[in-house]
Simulated scan of single mutants.
Amino acid sequence: MHKWIGENNETHGKRSLHSFSWLQNTSANKNGINLNKDAYFFISAYDTDLIKRITKGILSDPETFCGSKVIDIQIKNDTEFGTKERFFLNSPILIRQRDGERINHITYLDANFSELLTENLKGKLLQANLPIDGVTIELDKSYHSPTTKLVTYKGVENKTTMAPIIIKGSPEQIAFAWTVGLGESTGIGFGAIK
């Protein structure tokens, strides 16, 4: 992502108002992953200028990793939402809480998961100068098999959540969450929702 945004960019290291999914439609084996012809990932951002920069970066250097590259870009319009929406994840949600010197990774198994996820979204809404009143996020408790997933990033093991979530709020707040992702580190591939 940051290769396409540009080196030393202003989004690196800050709370991300963008997200991108993990690769979809792939299969894994003992040697790695297979990128099928219909494999894809998506990028979304609140700032349309950022999407333009990323698109320009992809067009000038489409290589991703291990010889793979982007061969097609599709731009999609925002979806219209109601005041309560259920979302599946395209990458797991990371949410943490500081406890003195210790940082705890919070998952759906923790009582404060929904509260911290809601507070995180409110922080992003404030950063974008959007209203925060009335927005809430909760785990879809009707889903029968939520899971935790340990994801290692740059040597750090992150305990994350994979489960559908429900967002309540104004259509604008829900569209914003859908665009920027949920939880922390959406700029490195966590918390993308579909």
Rank of each mutant, 00 (worst) to 15 (best):
I58K: 06
P171E: 10
E157L: 07
W22Y: 09
L130V: 02
D49W: 09
R98K: 15
N77S: 14
L130M: 14
S142Y: 05
A45P: 03
D110R: 12
S170H: 07
E184K: 13
G67R: 07
I166D: 03
S21M: 11
D38C: 00
I5P: 05
T107C: 10
T64S: 10
K69M: 09
L23W: 00
K3V: 09
T152V: 10
I54V: 15
N104P: 06
I58S: 06
F176P: 03
G189V: 04
W4T: 05
L116D: 10
H18Q: 12
G123T: 09
I43K: 01
A192E: 02
I137R: 01
T83A: 11
N112E: 15
G13C: 08
A28S: 14
A111L: 13
I73P: 00
D99M: 13
S27A: 15
Y143M: 00
H18D: 08
N25V: 05
K141T: 14
I43G: 01
G134W: 07
L116H: 09
D140C: 04
T152Q: 08
G191L: 02
F88T: 12
V180N: 01
L121S: 06
L130Y: 01
F20M: 08
F87T: 06
S170M: 07
I106V: 15
I58H: 06
F190Y: 15
T160K: 02
S170G: 06
W178C: 05
F87S: 07
E7Q: 06
K149C: 10
F81M: 07
T118H: 04
K124G: 07
G169M: 08
N9D: 12
E10S: 15
S60Q: 11
N8S: 12
E138M: 13
E7D: 05
L139M: 06
K37W: 04
G169P: 06
I51C: 07
E80L: 12
I174A: 05
N29L: 10
V180L: 04
V135A: 02
S68V: 02
L121T: 11
I132T: 15
N90Q: 13
E63W: 08
